[in-house]
């Protein structure tokens, strides 16, 4: 099959592969160590592991957008900040 019409690039392919990898990791994690039942975190609402991944990804997207809007520093700093944010979400939210 020809996927040229999708205009693939190396970085975007890597981005989607990382997302896919995250979903597979979450599945394996849940099978190996079940514990995805809802819990109430610091934001005061119940989240499962899947919810926390969603919050991490959505928040990371907005961190990158705000970084582009307000800072002229390299976007890798925003990526580092998003990683820290995701870890915090998984621990406390």
């Amino acid at each position: 099959m020809n996927f040229n019409w999708m205009a693939w690039t190396g970085p975007t392919a890597a981005f989607f592969l990382i997302i896919l990898g995250m979903l597979i990791t979450m599945t394996v994690w849940e099978i190996r160590v079940p514990g995805g039942a809802p819990r109430r975190g610091i934001l005061g609402f119940e989240t499962t592991r899947g919810d926390r991944l969603f919050v991490s990804l959505l928040g990371s997207a907005f961190i990158h957008i705000f970084w582009l809007a307000f800072f002229s520093l390299n976007l890798w700093w925003a990526f580092a900040l998003a990683c820290v944010y995701a870890v915090c979400v998984f621990i406390w939210v």
């Binding site: 999708m6 205009a7 690039t9 989607f16």
Partner: peptide
């Protein structure tokens, strides 16, 4: 698949 295509377009010019 369309969303992936949009992501691909968003980092390129044609």
């Amino acid at each position: 698949i369309p969303l992936m295509t949009v992501v691909n377009y968003s980092v390129q010019d044609t």
